[in-house]
């Protein structure tokens, strides 16, 4: 299952993605722009008090539950100061209930053990940002999901991004 989390509210972009996925039934799009989603408050309760549960009670729980059931997660974001938007970053900051407090080494680096399984990750962004940096960041996010990145794609590269959704 492919989970596409749109934070832009740009229906033209969503349509472009959907038309690329034409006829497939293994994806779901979450429209997060108007959902009530706060920021990670760094309380660590999801690791040490109520394992796997975010203490911030809002619509993010719906996203988290769907992430767990997916194999591939795509984030669709605008840009802010050369990065993804605060809303998109808040959604990603709050993936930490998907990991546990326990540590391990993955290759040469420390990592947290995953609570469920691994998920592939990809990014589609619309706006000004350094593509090499966005790819680097996507790759690092994917490590948190226990995988490698599918890439970071500019809006003009949606076709290419969709071809990676497999």
């Amino acid at each position: 299952m492919i989970l596409i989390i749109d934070t832009t509210g740009n229906e033209d972009m969503i349509n472009e993605i959907e038309s690329g996925l034409n006829g497939r039934n293994d994806y779901e799009i979450i429209r997060a722009k108007d959902m009530k989603i706060g920021h990670c408050i760094g309380c660590n309760y999801c690791w040490l008090k109520d394992p796997g549960i975010c203490s911030v009670k809002d619509d993010h729980e719906t996203i988290l539950k769907k992430m767990i059931l997916s194999d591939q997660i795509w984030l669709v974001s605008g840009t802010t100061l050369g990065f993804i938007t605060p809303l998109a970053k808040n959604i990603i900051d709050r993936i930490i209930p998907l990991a546990t407090m326990n540590l391990k080494f993955k290759g040469k680096q420390m990592r947290h053990e995953l609570r469920y399984k691994s998920y592939q990750f990809g990014l589609i962004y619309d706006g000004e940002a350094d593509k090499a940096f966005m790819e680097h960041w996507s790759d690092r996010v994917a490590i948190n999901f226990g995988s490698r990145t599918k890439g970071a794609f500019k809006r003009e590269e949606i076709k290419e991004a969709v071809s990676c959704m497999c």
Binding site: P86, K89, W137, N144
Partner: peptide, 12 residues
């Protein structure tokens, strides 16, 4: 460091 970059709240 929040998921490999700056926290969403600081970005906002």
């Amino acid at each position: 460091l929040f998921v490999e970059c700056i926290p969403g709240l600081l970005l906002e």
